[in-house]
């Protein structure tokens, strides 16, 4: 293990850039996935029954199919029709579509727990539907979903390793590279696992802090 770590030190810039790419991808998809989730959530709870059915179908489909299939479709399939997207673009699009579906589902669950009278009251006061969404629904639903949403960030961080399968040079890809070069597979993967463990621990601590700060007092948490 020690000699492997020494070897790893030699390739430090490569490992570091991989780590940077992992964090970049995880951060980008966490933001786009959250924004996308809010949009999908809005589409699902407003508008007619057709739109509701369509958005629910979207959520169900992306929750029911593996992300890797979508990534492979865009990365290995699309070039047959022309567009050759970079691994990063493919990862961002694919993850965003997928993460947005999950986030929308958490928000829907929290929404079902809201007091319908409260929404009636807001409408009775003369607020428009959009205003009710922005001022009454979203602030509550977001806070109720803090645990689920932060948990999704952890999943994003871990799942970003899947992007290695479409040749995105993220952290696990670099460790894979190192493993092949050194023939120290076990050491390389164990180190990779330990790094993910450390990263996730940091996010967990941050999430606890966020929860303490933003979870509404007296309101039951959504799960």
């Amino acid at each position: 293990m020690i000699s492997f770590l020494a070897q790893m030190l030699e390739y430090w810039p490569q490992v570091l850039s991989g780590l940077g790419n992992t964090l970049l991808l995880a951060a980008v998809i966490s933001v786009t996935g959250l924004v996308g989730g809010v949009v999908v959530f809005y589409l699902a709870i407003s508008g007619g029954p057709l739109r509701r059915r369509l958005t629910e179908g979207y959520i169900s489909f992306f929750i029911g199919t593996p992300l890797i299939v979508l990534l492979f479709l865009m990365y290995y399939g699309l070039p047959q029709w022309g567009p050759k997207l970079t691994p990063f673009t493919v990862a961002v699009i694919g993850f965003t579509l997928n993460v947005a579906a999950y986030n929308a589902r958490y928000l829907m669950t929290a929404f079902r727990g809201l007091d319908p009278d409260e929404l009636q009251a807001a409408r009775a006061q003369g607020f428009s539907d959009m205003q009710v969404f922005q001022l009454v629904i979203l602030p509550q639903v977001m806070r109720l979903s803090v645990p689920a949403l932060t948990n999704q960030v952890i999943l994003n961080l871990k799942d970003s390793s899947i992007a290695f399968l479409i040749q995105y040079a993220e952290f696990f890809a670099q460790m894979q590279d190192l493993a092949i070069r050194s023939f120290r597979f076990l050491d390389a993967y164990l180190v990779a696992g330990a790094v993910y463990l450390a990263l996730v621990s940091v996010v967990v601590v941050a999430a606890r802090w966020l929860e303490r700060r933003y979870v509404l007092p007296g309101v039951r948490r959504a799960r």
Binding site: I154, K158, D159, S161, I162, F164, L165, F172, Q176, A179, R184, F185, L186, D187, A188, Y189, L190, A192, G193, Y196, L197, V200, S201
Partner: peptide, 22 residues
């Protein structure tokens, strides 16, 4: 905590490609 923090792909590679080293 540990097994919820490690990506599936990483653990799979540890078990399948790593353990033969041991």
């Amino acid at each position: 905590f540990i097994f919820r923090a490690v990506p599936v792909l990483v653990l799979l590679f540890i078990v399948f490609f790593g353990l033969p080293n041991a």
